[in-house]
Computed example of a mutant assay.
Amino acid sequence: MSAPIVEVRNLVKRYGDVVALDHFDLRIEPGEIFGLLGPNGSGKTTAINCILQLLTFDKGDICLFGEPMTPTRYDLKRKIGVVPQNVALFEELTVRENIDFFCALYVDDRRERARLVDEAIAFVGLEDYVKFRPRKLSGGLLRRLNIACGIAHKPRLAFFDEPTVAVDPQSRNAILEGIRRMNAQGCTVVYTSHYMEEVEEICSRIMIMDRGRSVAVGTNVELKALVGAGERIIVEVAALGDAVRGRLASLPHVRRVTYTEPELVVQCEQGGHNVGDVLGVLADAGCAVGRVYAEPPTLNDVFLEITGKELRD
């Protein structure tokens, strides 16, 4: 078996009395699109910065491409691309000049670099904007330029931190499709986002972090099975009394019942007759039922089940 692209063992990072990473472990295999999720302050950014050797840490081992990673392993760093959440560009340079500048950090040969810059421009669809400066670009175009600057040198491993924040649906789709193409061409991707539907859509495996530790890792299906996330049944029904709600809550597989007139929401574990059971109780009680539909569990349901619903700073 090939070595993992990223392997982190027993990583500890403290800021004074605050433990940002608490014996954190991570393993990412070649060819994955790996989703890294967690509430604010869970340690995601700290973990990535330690992996990239942008932060020192108190304890632990980090290997990239099967070799120990240190601050001076520039040979390994040349294989890595980083697309930060905050757009990092030079306002005085054009689109082409920005991409060329960042590519030059990895590629010395001008002829080779010119080819890579052209490919990066085409990859993110900025052919019509090569002479524009960043201040003339929309938010979606800026995001695409930010990506081109981070991946023009064709990294084997790329970190994307919230790449679709505040962009329109067309730009979002273009960015996600570009990440898929990169992955299909052999790039392993680490993807962080607060948009659960994106992670559910493109990631082959997902880790949920909380309080500096990995609390769950697996495929989308495995994570849902881990917490027993079943379907959510939504029924429009008027004037639902406490007694009926109590009967619903006592049904097999029912985990939670909430009611805000006229919407009844019944959260269930996996079961073969959940919808029929709920409607049976309502029919026996003589309730007038309107629209009924069932939603499969989402990654957002899993995330809240594991990390809780309380607000984070």
Rank of each mutant, 00 (worst) to 15 (best):
V8R: 13
V12K: 08
R14W: 00
Y15P: 00
G16K: 05
V19S: 02
A20E: 03
A20P: 04
H23K: 15
F34D: 06
G35D: 04
L36G: 03
G38L: 00
G41T: 02
S42Q: 10
K44W: 09
T45H: 04
I48K: 13
C50Y: 04
I51C: 09
I51D: 09
L52M: 06
L52K: 04
L52R: 05
Q53H: 10
L54W: 13
L55A: 05
L55P: 01
F57R: 00
F57Y: 12
K59L: 10
K59E: 15
I62H: 11
T70L: 07
R73C: 05
Y74I: 14
L76A: 03
L76F: 02
K77D: 09
K79N: 15
V82S: 05
P84G: 10
E91S: 14
T94Y: 11
I99W: 11
F101V: 06
C103F: 09
R113C: 12
D118M: 00
A122H: 11
E127V: 04
E127L: 00
V130I: 12
R133W: 02
G139T: 04
G139V: 06
R143F: 02
C149F: 04
G150M: 01
R156Q: 15
L157N: 12
D161F: 10
D161H: 13
E162G: 01
P163C: 05
A166S: 14
P169C: 12
P169I: 14
P169G: 13
S171N: 12
N173T: 14
G178T: 08
G178I: 07
I179W: 06
I179M: 11
R180P: 06
M182H: 07
C187K: 06
T188C: 03
S204W: 03
I206T: 00
M207K: 00
M207R: 00
M209A: 08
S214V: 08
V215G: 01
V217Q: 03
V221T: 10
K224M: 00
A225H: 11
L226K: 04
G228S: 08
A229Q: 09
A229L: 08
I233R: 05
D242K: 15
G246M: 08
P252V: 04
H253A: 10
H253C: 10
R255K: 15
R256H: 14
T258L: 11
T258R: 14
P262D: 03
L264F: 09
L264C: 09
L264Y: 12
V266Q: 03
C268V: 10
C268P: 13
C268H: 10
G271S: 03
N274H: 04
V275Q: 07
V278P: 05
L279G: 01
A285I: 09
G290T: 07
V292Y: 08
E295I: 06
P296K: 15
P297Y: 04
N300D: 15
L304E: 06
E305P: 00
T307C: 06
T307N: 11
G308K: 10
E310Y: 11
R312F: 13
D313S: 13
